[in-house]
Amino acid sequence: MKVVTEQLPPLQIHHQGEAPTGAMVEIVELLLQQATLDGQIVFYPWARAYEVAQQQANTLIFSIMRTPAREHKFHWVAPLLADTVHLIRLKSRPELAISAIEQAKQFRIGVTRSDIAQFYLEEKGFTTEQNILLSSSYPRLWQSLFDRKVDYIMANEFMWRQKQTFEGETFQPIEVALSLDDFAQDYYLAASLNTSPIIISKLKKALEKIHQSGQYLAILQKWHLAD
């Protein structure tokens, strides 16, 4: 079977010529092992991963947020991680302080293409013609913020805290401009609609086992995603 994902440190990390790693990569690999399923994790830009997971049989995708608009497009195997989502700005730009999402319409917000963040903003009246800048990956998204091509980016707390920690002095100081409390916050492992029910059942049972054994929590703690 095929397993698709995107570059999203510290959940999914892939460097050319090296084996993929990251918290969710380790969990998904452990799930496949426990379920005695053969699957290769393939990294794509998010829009491509999302497309492949809808079109190909016996395909898994992670880490994907579950929303009403996506509900009928996948089998939702299991939640993997919960986190909060924010608008992030450079600390050196206090003029970008806001208290409501509507105030951000006069500025540009960076998001990854076909990500839930894009659809969230579009539902609130933002457009790619006026105030949304699309990037193909999270590294490019961060660079657009540092280069001031955008005023804000939408990012999960674990994502920007991890990036700040590991990049140290090369990371420009940032801060939360606005917490988006109405944004979907649970990351899932999902499967294409034409995935075998046997595979889905095996994965759900495997997840129960690694939760019960403590392996799941140990991986999150290793990556500083849980206490």
Rank of each mutant, 00 (worst) to 15 (best):
K2S: 08
V3M: 04
V3R: 03
V4L: 06
V4A: 07
E6N: 10
Q7W: 14
L8Y: 14
P9C: 07
P10I: 00
L11D: 09
Q12M: 15
I13K: 07
Q16H: 15
Q16C: 14
T21R: 10
T21M: 07
G22Y: 00
A23P: 04
M24F: 10
V25N: 03
V25M: 05
L31F: 00
L31G: 00
L32S: 01
Q34D: 08
L37R: 02
F43M: 03
F43R: 01
P45E: 09
R48G: 00
R48N: 02
A49Y: 04
V52T: 07
Q55E: 14
Q56T: 12
A57P: 10
N58G: 08
L60T: 03
S63H: 10
S63C: 10
I64R: 14
T67A: 06
P68D: 03
A69H: 12
K73Q: 15
F74W: 08
H75K: 12
A78G: 10
L80V: 06
A82K: 14
A82Q: 12
T84M: 14
H86M: 01
S92Y: 04
S92M: 04
R93Q: 13
A97K: 11
A97M: 12
A100K: 15
E102L: 08
Q103H: 05
A104T: 05
K105L: 01
Q106D: 09
Q106C: 08
F107E: 03
R108L: 14
R108Q: 15
G110P: 02
T112R: 12
R113P: 09
D115K: 08
I116G: 11
Q118N: 11
F119C: 00
L121D: 00
L121A: 00
E123W: 09
F126M: 04
T128E: 09
E129G: 11
E129K: 14
L133C: 13
R140P: 08
L141M: 11
S144C: 08
R148Y: 09
R148A: 12
I153N: 08
M154C: 03
M154R: 05
A155K: 07
N156Q: 13
M159E: 15
W160E: 07
R161G: 10
R161Y: 09
Q162C: 11
T165E: 11
E169T: 13
T170H: 14
F171R: 04
Q172H: 12
E175Q: 04
A177H: 05
A177W: 02
A177Q: 04
L178K: 01
L180Y: 00
L180M: 08
D181A: 14
D182E: 03
A184I: 06
A184V: 09
Q185L: 11
D186H: 12
D186F: 10
L189A: 05
A190V: 04
A191T: 01
L193R: 10
N194V: 09
P197D: 05
I198W: 11
I199N: 05
I199F: 02
I200C: 02
S201N: 12
K204G: 05
K205Q: 15
A206L: 01
H211A: 01
H211F: 07
Q212H: 09
Q212N: 11
G214T: 02
L217H: 13
L217M: 13
L220D: 00
Q221N: 08
Q221F: 02
Q221R: 09
K222D: 01
W223D: 07
H224M: 10
A226S: 06
